[in-house]
Design a protein around this nucleic acid. Structure first.
Length: 745
DNA sequence: TCAATCCGTATC
DNA sequence: ATACGGATTGAC
């Protein structure tokens, strides 16, 4: 038939019909399709002329249901189980085997655990290809089966200077040296480590990595944000000699990101540090995985299937039998559970050592009525806080002031009815910026010169919270003549010089200072503790300890004043520096209430009809329990909660961006549903009219499913089945399923 | 009896 | 999305 007329572009160069490869002609392919009912491998034939390039782990293009899609070749087989006829692999994209068997297995396990698809996990795990980089980076000198010793000399881990222990301060922890010894002996020790106040934790992690390198194995270190990563990078440089490691972070460009990924994959570098997306780094011959400050919510991946970095590392540790180190000043309930089940051992210091390292910590209540007219009271400083700050400054030491929110007056309410003040255009929160005469909207930026309460019509405002900028201003008056530095939001200071100065910082943005702060004043404690969040207490203690750990020991005059009621258990735990006791009580409480991590929990949320149908179809696992559904009022319609200059989410494919200012009210909640850029109700600034009444849009529901930990697999499978049924029938609406969601309320 | 069309289901 | 198979319909 009219062959010539049919083709606009020339027929494939394959004019000669394709013939299956002589050996192992069948390829098992993970296609890049994230539909739950297609979440399995598919078999294709390999053309004889692709047989060389078509190795396990390479990227391929295949025709799937009529269209070309990407995928990874996972395995070559002699024959297929598939009854029907097989198509050919259309193209081997590149002979570079980017997906190792370990990461392929890990991706499958993570998908199963989080009721997601392997395609989604692989998108998190393997960076996009950058062809030029791939070509530029030497095309594989020798056959790749060669021993690790064949790595280029300049990239091998610096010759371990002493074949024995790297010297370090792990001796301050009774179990520390034994843990390092285990790493050196290639034993899969697992530990939960409570860093001492003032601990140079990047150095300790670097020593652990060096011990791993001594044993000629790979190490992977995960930290919450870019600032932490810089410190670990520097410490690794010092411990390994500059070329023995590399870092993986979100802010690298595509080329650099892929270049480093290839260096890791090719085994040229065996010590890797990174932010959360690096948990999937294909480090060869893994001997140690480590994570620091695992309570930080940046370690929860915001893209489907929402895996948590700590959990992924636990999985890698278990399947590869490598050592695991979960560190932090504080201790999460999850870490506590590892200890109580005996899965991991504690690395903690003796009481005396803790006392010698910690500053003096006292609670000062949270009202500043005393001397209400003084500048100190305006700065929300209790007399004790003011005195501690004054004393530190007099001793030429810097003072750290931790405040919950950034901005000037970031949250306003009607002065009469106390309802939150909202923008009349987009209903976003109103706030005062520094030096601004009128409040403006934090979402759309519009200025509202004549506020009128949408609920009661009243015309004046009161501040609900005070931000870092306003606090800095007041502190300046309280301590006249002293330099005031703010570190919050987009403007974060990494380190400051020693000397008298006041640093006002939001949690996670505290600069480090050589020698330590003379004092830390922790404001807003009650507000932090009062958050309606399962993890409010744990999170508050984590933030307090992170700040207090930067203060010099009590013997050197270090003092911490926490602005909260001293009788509260969390405050007590801080004062006594007892993260273990706090975590133990926290875990007991969660067990009592049937909350994670003592049970497996999942949330099912989305459009009401779709959620109801999904719940109908759900096979509740044995001893499982369905809670809800309840209607969800979503105060944050978009996934961008901060309009002016806020860090754009999802810019880098490596995940985690620095953004250390994560006050509770501002936490952007994650994307509202499964769609990657989903903004259900359109952009924030819609509906010009309605200034008051809650305009109900399509109701959204949320249900929780919980099951005993032993039935976690069954729960994942049941949820995956629901998602599969939905996608197979192309059911309308949105349902987002999350296992171990970070926000339960 | 056969083709055109509709619907459901699988996607190697 | 698209492709295929089986059922259904309508015209000879």
């Amino acid at each position: 038939m009219t062959v010539a007329a049919r083709h606009i572009r020339p027929p494939r160069a394959t004019v000669g019909a394709r013939v299956p490869a002589e050996v192992l002609p069948v390829a098992r392919v993970a296609v890049d399709v994230s539909l739950a009912h297609l979440d399995r491998l598919f078999d294709y034939l390999i053309d004889e002329r692709d047989t060389e390039a078509a190795q396990a782990g390479v990227r391929v293009r295949v025709r799937f249901a009529g269209r070309l899609v990407g995928g990874y070749l996972l395995e070559r087989l002699g024959a297929s189980e598939h009854e029907g006829k097989l198509g050919f692999v259309e193209r081997v994209v590149s002979p570079e085997p980017v997906l190792t068997a370990e990461i392929a297995d890990l991706a499958r396990a993570v998908a199963d655990r989080y009721a997601g698809t392997i395609a989604d996990v692989l998108r998190l795990a393997v960076p996009p290809r950058h062809a030029r980089t791939e070509a530029a980076e030497e095309p594989e000198p020798e056959p790749r089966a060669s021993a690790p010793a064949s790595a280029p000399a300049h990239l091998t881990s610096a010759a371990p200077t002493s074949p024995t222990a790297p010297p370090g301060a792990w001796e301050r922890y009774p179990a520390g040296p034994a843990f390092l010894a285990a790493i050196r002996d290639r034993r899969p020790a697992r530990a939960v480590w409570q860093a001492l106040p003032g601990e140079d934790w990047p150095a300790r992690l670097a020593e652990a990595a060096a011990a791993t390198a001594c044993a000629d194995r790979g190490a992977l270190i995960i930290v919450p944000d870019a600032r932490d990563l810089q410190r670990v990078d520097a410490a690794l440089g010092a411990a390994l000699g500059g070329t023995g490691h590399l870092t993986l972070a979100a802010d690298l460009g595509p080329a650099e990101r892929y270049r480093r990924f290839l260096a890791v994959r090719r085994g040229a570098v065996k010590v890797v540090a990174g932010t959360r997306a690096a948990v999937f780094a294909p480090v060869a011959d893994l001997g140690l995985v480590a994570i620091f400050d695992d309570g930080d919510d940046l370690l929860a991946e915001p893209r489907a299937p929402y895996p948590h970095a700590r959990e992924v590392l636990m999985m890698r540790s278990a399947t590869r039998s490598c050592a695991l180190l979960v560190g932090g000043y504080a201790r999460t309930a999850e870490a506590q559970l590892m200890l109580e089940t005996g899965w991991a051992h504690p690395i903690t210091a003796e009481r005396a050592q803790v006392r010698a390292s910690a500053p003096r910590i006292e609670a000062a209540g949270d009202d500043y009525a005393t001397g209400a007219d003084s500048a100190a009271a305006h700065a929300r400083l209790s007399p004790a806080a003011f005195a501690a700050g004054r004393a530190a400054l007099d001793a030429q030491a810097p003072v750290l002031v931790q405040v919950l929110r950034r901005g000037y007056l970031p949250s306003l309410a009607c002065a009469r009815c106390r309802r939150q003040a909202l923008c009349r255009r987009c209903r976003g929160p109103l706030a005062f910026a520094a030096g601004g005469g009128s409040p403006n909207c934090r979402w759309c930026g519009v200025v509202d010169a004549h506020f009128q309460c949408g609920a009661c019509g009243f015309g004046s405002l009161r501040a609900v919270s005070v931000g870092s900028a306003r606090t800095a201003e007041e502190i300046g008056r309280a301590f006249p003549g002293v330099t005031v530095i703010t570190s919050a939001g987009n403007r974060v200071a990494g380190a400051i010089p020693n000397g008298p100065a006041v640093v006002v910082a939001t949690p996670g943005a505290e600069p480090v200072v050589a020698g330590g702060y003379g004092a830390a004043l922790l404001l807003d404690g009650s507000a932090m503790l009062a958050r309606p969040d399962l993890r409010a207490a744990e999170e508050t203690l984590r933030r307090w300890m992170a700040a207090a750990a930067l203060v010099r020991p009590a013997a050197d005059g270090g003092r911490v004043i926490v602005g909260a009621d001293g009788s509260l258990p969390t405050v007590q735990s801080l004062v006594r520096w007892d993260p273990g006791g706090h975590a133990s009580r926290e875990l007991a409480a969660r067990r009592e209430l049937g909350f994670p991590p003592t049970v497996a929990m999942a949330s099912i949320e989305g459009d009401a009809p779709a959620v109801l149908a999904a719940l109908d179809a759900l096979a509740v696992p044995p001893d499982g329990e369905l809670l809800g559904p309840v209607e969800l009022e979503d105060p944050w319609p978009g996934d961008i909660a901060e309009a002016p200059g806020g860090a754009k989410p999802g810019s880098g494919l490596t995940g985690s961006s620095a953004g250390p200012d994560r006050a509770p009210g501002e936490a952007p909640h994650g994307a509202p549903h499964g769609a990657p850029n989903g903004a259900p109700g359109g952009s924030p600034n819609r509906v010009p009219g309605g200034a008051g009444v809650d305009d109900e849009q399509a109701p959204r529901l949320r249900a929780l499913l919980r099951a005993p930990l032993a039935n976690r697999k069954a729960m994942g499978a049941a949820l995956h089945a629901v998602a599969a049924a939905r996608s197979a029938r192309k059911e309308p609406g949105t349902v987002r399923i999350r296992v171990d969601p970070s926000d339960l309320f």
